[in-house]
Simulated scan of single mutants.
Amino acid sequence: MKKLIIIPAYNEGENIEKTIQNIQENAPEFDYVVINDCSTDNTLQILQQNKLNHISLPINLGIGGAVQTGYKYAFENGYDIAVQVDGDGQHDVSYLEKMCIEMQNQNADMVIGSRFITKEGFQSTFMRRVGITYFTRLIKLLTGITITDPTSGFRLINRKVIALFAKDYPRDYPEPESIVELLCKKYKVIEVPVQMKERAGGQSSIRMWNSVYYMIKVSFAIFVEMIRK
């Protein structure tokens, strides 16, 4: 099976080399592509100088547009499995083998790496945990299914979902919304326990000042998705 790691990167000059080295050492059976989302730091220079596989977007599309670019790349190049791995070094790719096994054993369409099943490793910031709890309860209310880590960017999908997301993917903070879309369309979404690390450098795109906007905007998008069901 052809397997691809998609790495959305915006101003990840401090982390991107180490992230790719980790992939090459601990997940060598996966190809990778970095989606440089019009970074304003030295991310592009690092990618070019080290001849790392990348696509450089001409304008900043945000996390949703960057990840969808990776899914389009995966679909057009015939990949059977794609996984999103953040460029900040938080995701441990040594879990990918277990995630692939669980996908096969449980005939799942998406496997989410959740830090909240065993509650080990970095548990995220307080404000982000508030949002995670909110979306867990909202998704449970709307679909009857509990997703413990609905904002996790560590998500592995099969060829069917690659095709779906290559055509249509949420633009702004896409993780909870895309989970609801899959559940509404009767795809099977499961979680496996993982440990995550604290960001090694740079800054998260979700900060305290925009977390309320995040919750309102994504909630509205989820309700729209339920209406479209």
Rank of each mutant, 00 (worst) to 15 (best):
G62R: 10
T43E: 09
P28Y: 06
I23V: 15
N50D: 14
G78Y: 10
I63D: 02
H91F: 10
N53M: 11
G89M: 10
G64D: 02
F75H: 14
H91Y: 08
E17V: 09
N42W: 03
E12N: 12
V83I: 15
K72T: 07
N15W: 01
A74I: 03
G64H: 02
T69G: 01
T40S: 13
N53E: 14
I16K: 04
V34L: 07
N22Y: 03
L44E: 15
Q45M: 13
A27K: 04
Y32E: 01
E17A: 11
H91W: 01
Q24A: 10
D86S: 15
Q90V: 14
E14H: 08
C38Q: 12
S56A: 15
Q84G: 01
A27F: 07
G70E: 01
I35M: 02
Q90Y: 01
Q68S: 04
C38F: 14
G78M: 09
G62C: 10
E14D: 13
N26R: 12
E76R: 11
G62M: 08
I23M: 07
I20T: 03
V83H: 07
D31H: 07
T40L: 15
Q84N: 14
A82W: 01
D80R: 08
N42P: 00
L61A: 12
N22S: 14
V34D: 03
K51A: 10
L44K: 15
V83D: 10
H91R: 05
L52D: 05
V83P: 01
Q84P: 00
I35E: 00
D41I: 13
Y71L: 01
G64E: 02
D88W: 05
A27S: 14
E12G: 02
V33W: 05
T69V: 00
S56L: 06
N77C: 09
Y32S: 02
E29F: 09
G64T: 01
Q68L: 05
S56K: 11
S39Y: 06
V83M: 13
G62H: 12
V67P: 00
V85A: 05
I20F: 01
